[in-house]
Design a protein around this nucleic acid. Structure first.
Lengths: 340, 340
DNA sequence: CTGAAAGCGCTTACAG
DNA sequence: CTGAAAGCGCTTACAG
């Protein structure tokens, strides 16, 4: 009887084992698996290394590689609002764009808060290959680790601090206010995000300026805010609807669709018909916004575009490329039933 | 004129620098920052180390630490359906439960596909502290890296392969079918997920068995499937509604709320009233399901519970704890307008 | 309680 | 084209 083949050794495969099998040095293995062997290793030896890699199932140990090179293959995505469905598409696009070369590490500070200095230090200790930071504040950028390629997502006004990928919020806001003006709305309630980010600041100020320009009023005092959570947004809207209505508001804009979903829920509970009694609009154009009751008018902020463009930019920075002109992503108004 | 204070050295702070400042050895620094100094370092020296750490802003280099220890602080979450809003809460809960000790790395295979052997090898090369795997197939588990603590999420039937945190889908299904039976439905269309995961298999077979038990019919031939994407689900439902209706279906169940949102959209486009012409229900109870048109009946699968319980279990495994009895999470039916 | 030293598994000048 | 060796910054026996 023939003995069964010995079980594959449970030991982890190292470059030394590959080198021994291929009859080369460890250095040769490193050069070949990293594709740096042109003109340094004979074709024959390179092929032997490749064969040994295949046979043994060798994969470079990323911790050792990171230590030797001084940087890892990890790209960190920092986002204050991770649980927001908006980020699903961003994350997905980032991941697909990064491909097999980088690993995506998520970092979300406790909802809404900005990362602390200690957080930033711990991130830097990972020796990330690059950082993607969504909706940052200026304060965060002051603490950002030096020497790490950095791309900002949806960080209007911070373009001078780092390469940024932003939406053309001004166009979207103009279209939204024009649309509401045309429908005869003069006073508009506003539900703001509670995340302290430049993009929310800008959304509010743009809306306000554009409304004023047309002789309309955006109600921002008192400031009504909520984290990106439907239940919390509903509570905030429910508490504010009487005051908004008393001030003559016939429409409510929310800083994001998730917040707008909360407004819709609050209107339903208050027995208000949308859009007859009150119109509602948001930002993001989440997939679910096409099926809400009623379907939601929204300034579409394509998250997949944001993720893919930012990731592509980051990779080019990591590879030593120059930061190209920051491109603005479209922010188009999608009109649906919630604004009649 | 006094010279300005020299800028803080841009050099990265190492344990050697801390040791020099504290007047101790590097080993002492390591022991103190890792809290392993009890009975090994004098209180006085420990305090000097802590002071030096504070003054220099020292953080342990995680790549070097991982290499020396043979394992990193990274916990990998593998999920086939990451862009699905369902995962927002899971991710958030996992992250909060892991706290500062671990970093969360996301791995999503191209939507719906299972990770390949090569993917698994690359993950293993990160030397993760642990793995969280959502909705896996049996095949994946055969390739899973050995020797890495592993917890499965929503992996019914795979409990014997690894510690798992599952929902009590049977109860949820029973309640849903009972509810529909009570409303007089006898024939039900089914929109399945296209992700090849045990949880989707189980949802379908449980529904089918429970329907049969009550003399009802779940239409599963031909199998209608979609990825967790509203647009794709809408297209699938739109194509199947005529056949479902022709077979006498007065209700449609979708394997997840995201899919159900697509069904709602398809009904709206087909001019069908929900629930008068056709009732609709899903699984997950996404936040948005409370504000869809109409609000969606759903078997609630609390993602935050799934994430926190699984993460807590994983941490205990990492710390050498025994895998406790797998607890089943509740899956309660939430009845809303979409089923009348 | 303390420190010198080996070792983790790579990458990269460097000398042939 | 090739390989021996230093070095990345830790952690952990080990000998005092």
């Amino acid at each position: 009887m023939s003995t069964p083949p010995p079980p594959p050794p449970r030991k982890r495969v190292t470059a030394a084992m590959v080198a021994e099998r291929a009859g080369t040095s460890i250095a040769a293995v490193s050069l070949v698996v990293n594709g740096k062997h042109r003109g340094r290793i004979s074709d024959e030896n390179a092929e032997r290394v490749r064969a040994a890699v295949r046979e043994l199932g060798y994969v470079v140990d990323s911790t050792a590689s990171a230590l030797a090179r001084g940087t890892s293959d990890v790209v960190v995505l920092l986002a204050p609002d991770l649980p927001n469905p908006f980020f699903g598409r961003v994350i997905n696009a980032v991941q697909e764009t990064l491909g097999e070369r980088f690993q995506l590490l998520l970092f979300a500070s406790p909802t809404g808060a900005q990362p602390t200095v200690a957080d930033v230090r711990r991130l830097a200790a990972l020796r990330p290959a690059g950082l993607l930071v969504s909706a940052p504040t200026v304060e965060f950028l002051d603490d950002a680790p030096a020497g790490v390629p950095l791309v900002l997502l949806d960080a209007p006004g911070l373009e001078d601090r780092a390469p940024a990928v932003n939406y053309d919020l001004a166009s979207g806001v103009r279209a939204l206010i024009a649309h509401l003006a045309e429908r005869g709305h003069r006073v508009i309630g506003y539900l703001d995000g509670s995340t302290p980010a430049a993009t929310y600041e800008l959304r509010r100020t743009l809306l306000q300026a554009e409304a004023e320009r047309r002789g309309m009023t955006l109600l921002t005092t008192p400031r009504v805010r909520s984290r990106p959570d439907i239940a919390e947004a509903m509570a905030a809207a429910e508490a504010s609807l009487p005051a908004w209505r008393a001030a003559g508001a016939t429409a409510v804009i929310a800083a994001s669709d998730t917040l707008a979903h909360g407004v819709l829920a609050a209107c339903a509970r208050a027995g208000l018909r949308v859009p007859e009694d009150i119109a509602v609009a948001g930002f993001d154009d989440l997939p679910a916004s096409a099926v809400t009751a009623p379907a939601l008018t929204s300034v579409a902020l394509p998250g997949d575009l944001l993720g893919s463009v930012a990731a592509r930019l980051l990779v080019s920075l990591i590879d030593g490329g120059e930061a190209p002109e920051p491109a603005e992503l479209p922010a188009a108004l999608v009109v649906r039933a919630s604004t009649g």
